[in-house]
Amino acid sequence: MPPLDLPFAALADPTRRAILARLAEGEATVQDLARPFAISQPAISRHLKVLEEAGLIETRIQGTARPRRLKPDTMAQLWDWLGQYRALWEAQFQRLDDLLDSLDDQAAAPSPDTERKP
């Protein structure tokens, strides 16, 4: 499986996406994260574990505190990948544009739109 499979699977959950959104504002502890969500700290911890295993976040050790933060590398990787994916799809649509341009208009079924193009 491609390495991005895990992050995408982790992102399938809306709570985990919300946690990521919160972490986008800055690092936060389990307590910080549990507050805005109507979820117990153990539940938050489980989500954090999934996110960490997916490489989306990392834990910083600061004395007894364990703030979590985004892992920029994975974010950048995801973004690059999405861009390539989008470009592929758009390339296919541009081929469709070219094909449509080359198609004979009268060969198409009659269209209710008889106006000329401005």
């Binding site: 469709l96 544009d97 449509l100 198609l103 208009d105 060969a107 079924a109 269209s111």
Partner: peptide, 11 residues
């Protein structure tokens, strides 16, 4: 797309 649905449908 810059062409009507009938044409896109064919494609």
């Amino acid at each position: 797309f810059a062409h009507p649905p009938a044409k896109v449908w064919r494609a």
